[in-house]
Amino acid sequence: MENSKIIIGYLIYLPVVIALTIYVSKMLFKNGKLLMIDIFKGKEDIALATNKLFEIGFYLINIGWALLILKISYYSQIEIGYQKLIEILSKKIGGFSIYLGTMLFLNLLLFFKGRNKSKQSIKINTKEELK
């Protein structure tokens, strides 16, 4: 079959990418639970619910993007050698890894923005109580 190397490429790309996503997501949202409880000032149920919702959004957008960039467009006459396959795979997996890191930082940024907002509202509340 002429496309066997491409199928090998897919079979390497998909598990790696899915494993990366699941690992990063688990790390981010396991450690994010404490941060959420800190932001929501101890209201544990809403903190956990927000954490779960962000986790699902993270999964969705990352797996969706990974699937969208999966397609390896092939040159139909010359069969792809192993070197070209490795280069294509490195581009896809490396690019996805960079994208995943960017998403991670974006989410952290969102968390810390929420934290600043909640700290501000604590200050406003305590100022009103002191008056």
């Binding site: 496309n3 491409i6 199928i7 897919y10 919702l53 699902i56 959004g57 969705l60 957008i61 797996i63 969706g64 993007w65 990974a66 699937l67 969208l68 960039i69 999966l70 397609k71």
Partner: peptide, 24 residues
């Protein structure tokens, strides 16, 4: 046969990203 994987991933990817946009 290989187009099966291509089409599947394209369509699934599109719908999952749509779900993500709605979610956010």
């Amino acid at each position: 046969p290989i187009e099966v994987i291509n089409t599947l991933s394209g369509v699934l990817g599109k719908i999952i990203i749509l779900l993500a946009i709605l979610h956010y």
